[in-house]
Structures are given as C-alpha cells and as structure tokens.
C-alpha cells in the first residue's frame, strides 16, 4: 500500500424519515436516478424507508427528515434523530414551515375532528385508543422542536437540488442552491 495515498474515506451513515409529509421528498430523492450509485459509494443508509431499519443507530452522520411535526409520535421520532445524528437536515416545504399540513392551523383541531368523526345520527366518536398518537394543537416546522442544521427547501426539492445539496455537504462545503435549484414549491 502506498503510504502517501490518502486513507480511504469512511462512508457516512445516513438516516432518513418522513414525519407529517407525503413521501414526495423521498420520491424526489430517488429522482437523482443513476447518481444514487455514486451516492452509495459515499454513504450507507441507516434507518430509512429505503432500508426499513426501525431505529437510528447511534452516531449517524446525517439525518434527513421530510415533513413537519403534527403529532406526538413525530416529536419522539424527531428527538431520536436529533439524539443520534450529527447533522440534521430539514428537507422540503413541510419540514421547513409546516407546509400543506400546517394549513389546518387556521382551524381549531377540535372542530376539525368533530367534523371528520361526525356520524349521521350517531354523534361524534373521536378515537381514543392509547396506541394512536395524539395530534398537536398545531402543526410545526422541525426547527421549532429541535435544532436543525441545514434546510433544503422545495415541494419537493428536485433531484438535482438534492444532489447538489448532498454533494456540497459530503464535500464539507456549506450547501448552496443557486437559481433554478432553490424553490419553495
């Protein structure tokens, strides 16, 4: 082995999840197409819908989260990510400002449920099974619940934007998205 060659780079461990989102950002992730092959050269996936691993390993390098926080379970998952990931990334409009789910914030959650669970002639029966996570009074963006290190806007961010963002980050650069890549929709 050539002593002067740089040591082989450790692969970074990446975890991802979707909270109050629509998986659109994850779909867009897959839109980086064949570049995903380049990506897996650089990273290993931990907890993620892609791997079906259920909990974050400690010492993940990157946590990428789509969706805002709308219920108690979202909060727990988000805390798990924050605890185990060195860098946390809010991906997509919902993660960044609550997005479409947060449009319910202009209504009272009690009124919404009363309307949704109203059964003609049988009154309102809102499920109260302890297995079901309770909804928060309002939907919140991630950075109102834990510290977020980077934001990747878009609804969803395009495959190109995700690629540019991740390659910047993996190379140790502060990610920037120029014209055409930065989008709120």
């Amino acid at each position: 082995m050539n002593a002067s060659a740089p040591p082989p780079k450790r692969k970074l461990l990446v975890a991802t999840t979707s909270l109050a989102g629509c998986f659109g950002c994850h779909m867009s992730f897959l839109d980086i197409d064949e570049r995903i092959l380049d990506l897996v050269e650089l990273v290993d996936f931990d907890r993620s819908p892609i791997t079906d691993i259920k909990h974050c390993s400690p010492n993940c390098d990157l946590g990428i989260i789509e969706g805002g926080v709308c219920n108690a379970e979202n909060v727990h998952v988000l805390h798990e990510f924050r605890k185990n990931c060195k860098i946390l990334i809010a991906m997509g409009a919902c993660a960044i400002n609550g997005g479409l789910p947060a449009q319910r914030n202009s209504l009272d959650i009690r009124d919404i449920l009363a309307a949704v669970y109203a059964q003609p002639g049988r009154g309102v029966h809102i499920p109260n099974d302890p297995e079901i996570p309770l909804l928060l009074n309002e939907v919140h963006p991630l950075h109102e619940v834990v510290k977020i290190d980077y934001f990747l806007p878009g609804c969803p961010p395009s495959g190109d934007a995700i690629w540019k963002f991740l390659t910047d980050l993996l190379a140790g650069r502060t990610p920037t998205l120029g014209h055409g890549l930065i989008h709120y929709d």
Partner: peptide, 28 residues
C-alpha cells in the same frame, strides 16, 4: 443550547380534551 419554540406538552391539550385520554402516551 436549544429549546422548542412552544410548549410541547400543552400542544396536546386539545386532543386530551376531546379524547379524554391522560395516559403516558398523551403527555411528553
């Protein structure tokens, strides 16, 4: 260094009210 921008536990207040739940899962 960082604390949430709002009170997490009281953000479940309305749901506790309409479901009548008070189990550990209904609190942070």
């Amino acid at each position: 260094d960082f604390e949430p921008a709002f009170d997490l536990d009281s953000a479940l207040s309305k749901m506790r009210e309409v479901t009548g739940r008070d189990d550990p899962g209904a609190h942070f």
